[in-house]
Design a protein around this nucleic acid. Structure first.
Lengths: 238, 238
DNA sequence: TAGTGGTCTAGACCACGAC
DNA sequence: TCGTGGTCTAGACCACTAC
């Protein structure tokens, strides 16, 4: 564990436990330098991390003010998998793998230059059940990194990202996401518990690895009444 | 202008203009130090800024890879005002101020501890027209910072944030936002061009100043077919 | 092995806030 | 005035990538 990470986690823990109460000031950077016996830049890196995650607000001439974490830190933003979300929220859920097969790359990905024309991809379709109802339908196209590559159904029922990052050792770096509300398709009707709904929320993502190579395109289709997206945003004054 | 900002803007400009083509490597940090005649930490701060805004991907042992800005940098995320959005997209639009009056603070804000019970706030309701249709309905509750405070209608038709930041000199720092899809209200029907729609996208925000004091609560109600939210997200491996 | 970015140090000076 | 965070410097050593 890096020094600045250790300091970040220690301060984060003290904020979450109330050792540093909401609205109070953290010890000054100078004091933290003395306490942790590290250089000021190392302290500042830890504080920057706290700032970016919504734990503190810094003010020149004053100090680092502790924010109300419970209010601002239900992060559904960023790049987080369904499994990681569920783990945080402790909701009874289940995943059913509907499709897991090789297909030709969809045309719009070829046109976007993300894959070559005759390339094969793995199409993965999964139902996400919460309290016994299918609330989310996930459709993923994953680039084949080798001829033999396949995705074990048992793993896909847990987490695609756990498999790609843990078992295969890929490093997922960033994604472009797009949120829309669209009319339902026949597939939505068949695979989701929609009732009278006429629309679903569609989250489309293009996902890339650390070397900037394309790895995954996904469409996550959500029932309107269960969709919620929470974000913590900082204003850019540049 | 700070040094690292100047370097950030110069590199950003060269990426956007294609001087550094997509997929190529930026000059190494060592080279940039020599070119700009600054210390390495200053270069690194500029590069960190490019990374956070989706312009580059860094890889240890390799370098800084230029990403496809056109594809990833339509930022509707962050904390951006309607006026700033319109400016980027050059769409003919108009804002109509429907209400601008003092009211008692709404109960849910009192319960959340954001305002005191008998406090007055300014209620601002604005229609956002695009191509002659009301697509968005913005309802804002703004905290009264003085007895005399009022918001000029002419300014509100341009930008609330321009007024608060420019004219009054407030510094908006961060916000918590929540996205939901909800059934329409009577007010939506009356003030928006909804057609057969039964739902709208609702974006609720709590906005805070640099000293962490609460300043604004807002509800932005969007017609389903015109709502779109684009995000660039990095995976947290910590 | 050579070159890259990642981490860390020990200073300096400046701008802002509270008193 | 004093203490705070913001910017910047000039080094050091380490981990990873490419060859």
């Amino acid at each position: 564990m890096k020094l600045h990470e250790k300091i970040y986690f220690e301060l984060k823990e003290k904020i979450e436990s109330g050792t540093y109460p909401v609205g109070s000031l953290l010890p000054s950077e100078h004091e933290l330098v003395a306490n942790f016996q590290v250089s000021r830049e190392t302290i500042r890196k830890a504080l920057r991390n706290l700032l970016e995650h919504g734990y503190i607000q810094k003010k020149q001439g004053k100090g680092s003010i502790v924010l109300d974490v419970k209010r601002y830190n239900f992060p559904v933003s960023g790049l987080v998998s369904f499994k990681e979300l569920q783990a945080k929220q402790a909701i009874p859920s289940r995943t059913i793998v509907v499709k897991n097969e090789r297909v030709k790359a969809p045309k719009h990905l070829v046109e976007a230059g993300l894959v070559t024309e005759d390339e094969e991809m793995i199409l993965l379709v999964r139902q996400r059940e919460i309290n016994g109802e299918v609330i989310i339908l996930d459709k993923d196209y994953i680039k084949c990194l080798s001829k033999e590559m396949h995705l074990p159904n048992e793993q896909m029922a847990i987490s695609l990202y756990d498999y790609l990052e843990g078992d295969i050792g890929l490093l997922i770096a960033y994604a472009k996401k797009e949120f829309n509300v669209e009319p339902i398709t026949k597939e939505d009707c068949e695979l989701m518990a929609l009732g009278q709904d006429t629309h679903v929320v569609v989250v489309r993502s293009e996902v890339f690895l650390e070397d900037t190579s394309f790895i995954q395109y996904s469409e996550s289709r959500h029932r309107l009444d269960k969709f919620k997206f929470v974000d913590f945003a900082r204003r850019q004054h540049a």
